[in-house]
Design a protein around this nucleic acid. Structure first.
Lengths: 209, 209
DNA sequence: AACCTGATCTTTACGCTGTCAAGTTTGGCA
DNA sequence: TGCCAAACTTGACAGCGTAAAGATCAGGTT
């Protein structure tokens, strides 16, 4: 009688490669951080993973699918960056919100091409479902940080829109060099204090205690 | 001996185009608005202008140069859109600023790919000089609109950074569909009122008369 | 008049890209 | 065992940016 392997993973195991799908995503992230968004290529990802140029087609639906998958992972890292910037010991609600925003900018400075990718919807048409999941996942961090400073009786969406627009706009403009040269060491962040100062005004609306 | 053509037939068109450079830029803008940023191609621009695919090389330094030239024209149109949205009869300083911001969003809705192009620095590396000229040209409109609401003794850069980040961030997020589907008719602009509401708070800082 | 020179545009070619179609390998199962 | 479907390879194709070299033309020089 034939003995069947008892320990079998529930998922289909790739035959040649250990986990090609993950390897391709990681290769793509590396390519993005090394050569910018122009360097993200199906063929380069395949070569870096050690497979033929057409192998990615079996794991992603074309380049758009790969980009969507990378964006999904990018949102996960983005969320971690936001949380890492405000894990101080019991800061105030406002300090926590400012920390989240600081992490927002940090992530863009540390991963410029990946930040660009996750917020560019165009080249991932047809994958809105995957993207929306990643968006809401990361957006929840910002939403939770905004909640404590929302005035009573006001729609939380108002403050969320204001804060998100503010930090997202500053980050984009800073990364595009509109506030001067970008400093990859995060020492010089341009007039970021102006953003923090405006966030400070959100405190006054609720500090009635 | 292989016979060679002794008489040259006029199979070549006249080697002079009226204003090929301008025609290529206009063709590029049309391509952007019709097919999105992926449709902007040197060869398509050349074909639309009725010249061979390599003709643009003599007027622009590659694709990056064409993009920079298109961006420069885009900034001019962008400035006009901002000004057109606030040419009411003697509005207040704050209403004027809100009109500028409304025009900011209008331009992005009406010219999504062009708006994307003018604020994406990456694919135009080496042409910062051209771009900075266009940026400052359009930025001056926003700066002038911010000036009247700057509190006395404060650096105008603070308010400019806050307002620019706010409107730029909202426009980008709205265009990326983060506030729901984009409405090309400009009827539904998402939670844009939240941005306007925050701009209203800038009034209180100076209304001491 | 003939000549030349630089600018403009064409032609050809190369490598890289995404994508498709068809063939090959492999692991697991009846 | 023999088969099957998934994973991957191979080959081909059109479109892309770019470079080199040829063709044409306008205008000034001699």
């Amino acid at each position: 009688m034939i003995l069947k392997p008892m320990t079998k993973e529930p998922n289909h195991k790739p035959h040649h490669h250990g986990d090609l799908r993950t390897a391709l995503i990681q290769a793509g992230i590396s390519l993005l951080s090394e050569g910018g968004k122009e360097s993200l290529t199906l063929r380069k990802c395949a070569a870096r993973a050690g497979v033929s140029h057409a192998a990615p087609a079996h794991h992603f639906d074309g380049l758009a699918g790969l980009r969507a998958a990378i964006a999904k992972e990018g949102f996960r890292l983005f969320r971690l960056s936001m949380l890492a910037a405000c894990d101080d010991n019991n800061p105030s609600d406002l300090d926590r919100l400012k920390g989240i925003c600081s992490g927002y900018l940090n992530f863009a400075i540390e991963n410029p091409a990946l930040f660009d990718l996750i917020f560019s919807a165009a080249p991932m048409a047809g994958f809105e479902a995957d993207l929306e999941q990643g968006t809401t996942f990361a957006y929840k961090v910002l939403r939770d940080a905004c909640a404590p400073v929302v005035p009573e009786g006001q729609d939380p969406m108002v403050v969320e829109t204001q804060v998100w627009s503010l930090i997202h706009g500053y980050t984009n403009l800073y990364m595009a060099g509109r506030f001067g040269p970008v400093d990859p060491t995060q020492q010089a962040r341009g007039p970021f204090d102006a953003v923090m100062a405006l966030l400070d005004t959100f405190d006054a609306t609720t500090s009635k205690t």
